[in-house]
C-alpha cells in the first residue's frame, strides 16, 4: 500500500462503526499488555532495585511519578491533535476522543502532583514548593478542569465539540506561555536556592542521573502507562460514541412520536 492509500485508510476509522469494531478487536491487547507492563515494572522496581545512596527507598516513587507526569502532558497533546482534526476534517470520533481523554489526563496530573508532594515531603521538607515544574502542573490541572467543565456545560454536542476544540488550541498557547512565565517568575524569586535545585530530581533531569538499574523498570512502567492510556481512551471513546447515539436516537424518537 502506498503512503497516500495508508493515510486514506487511517481516515476510515473516523467512521464510528468502523472505529467501534476495530477498537473492540484491539482493546484486549492494549489492556493486557499495559497491565502486564505496569505490574512487571512496578514489581521489578519495588522489590528488586536497590535504594538510592542519597534518597533511600523514596527513589521507588519514580516508577509512578515520571510515567504519570509524561502522560499528563502527552494527553493534552493528544487532545490538541484530535481537536485540530475535528476542526479541520469534522470527524466526530476525533472530538469525542478528546472528550474521552480529558478525565484520564486529570487523573494522570493528580497522580503526578500527589506522588510529587508525598516524595517532596521527606526530600525537601515540604509537601509543596512553588517550583516552576510543580506550578506548571498545577496550571495544567486547571486547564483540564476548565476544558471538562465546558464540555459538561454545553447541551448541543457539535457546539460543545467546536468550543472545546478552540479552547484547547488557545489553552495550549497559554499553557506554554505560563510555563515560561512561571520559570521566569520563580527565578526572579529564588536565585538558585538549594531546595529548588533538588527539584531537578523530578522530570527529565532524572534520566541523566538514573543508572540502568532504575532505568529499565522505569521504561517498562512508561510503556505500560502509554498502553493503559490508549486502552482507556479507546474504551472511553466507545462509550462517548454510544452515548451520542442514544442522544440522537432519542431525539429522532421525539420527532417521530
Amino acid at each position: 500500500m502506498s503512503i497516500a492509500a495508508k493515510a486514506n485508510a487511517l481516515w476510515e476509522y473516523a467512521n464510528p462503526r468502523k472505529f467501534l469494531a476495530t477498537s473492540e478487536r484491539v482493546m484486549p491487547f492494549f489492556w493486557i499488555t499495559s497491565i502486564a507492563c505496569i505490574v512487571i515494572g512496578l514489581v521489578w522496581g519495588f522489590f528488586f532495585t536497590p535504594d538510592d545512596y542519597k534518597q533511600g527507598s523514596t527513589v521507588k516513587i519514580i516508577y509512578l511519578h515520571v510515567p504519570a507526569a509524561l502522560m499528563a502532558i502527552n494527553c493534552w497533546l493528544m487532545m490538541l491533535a484530535t481537536s485540530l482534526v475535528w476542526l479541520v476534517r469534522r470527524h466526530h470520533v476525533s472530538a469525542l476522543a478528546a472528550r474521552a481523554a480529558a478525565p484520564v489526563g486529570i487523573v494522570m496530573t493528580l497522580i503526578a502532583l500527589a506522588t510529587g508532594a508525598i516524595w517532596g515531603q521527606p526530600m525537601w521538607g515540604t509537601w509543596w514548593a512553588w517550583d516552576p515544574r510543580l506550578t506548571s502542573f498545577l496550571i495544567l490541572f486547571l486547564f483540564y478542569l476548565g476544558y471538562v467543565a465546558l464540555w459538561e456545560a454545553i447541551e448541543d454536542p457539535d457546539t460543545a465539540a467546536d468550543l472545546t476544540s478552540v479552547l484547547c488550541l488557545v489553552g495550549s498557547v497559554f499553557a506554554i506561555l505560563s510555563r515560561y512565565a512561571v520559570n521566569f517568575w520563580n527565578q526572579g524569586l529564588h536565585q538558585g536556592a538549594s531546595v529548588m535545585r533538588a527539584a531537578a530530581i523530578t522530570g527529565t533531569d532524572t534520566e541523566e542521573k538514573v543508572s540502568n538499574i532504575y532505568f529499565y523498570p522505569l521504561l517498562l512502567c512508561i510503556i505500560g502507562f502509554v498502553l493503559l492510556f490508549i486502552a482507556l481512551v479507546l474504551y472511553r471513546t466507545g462509550t462517548e460514541i454510544r452515548a451520542r447515539r442514544i442522544k440522537a436516537l432519542l431525539a429522532r424518537e421525539r420527532v417521530n412520536g
Binding site: L42, T58, I61, I118, Q121
Partner: peptide, 10 residues
C-alpha cells in the same frame, strides 16, 4: 512515603 505514593497512585 513510598507506600503512600503507591497506594494513592494505584
Amino acid at each position: 512515603t513510598v507506600m503512600w505514593s503507591y497506594i494513592v497512585s494505584i
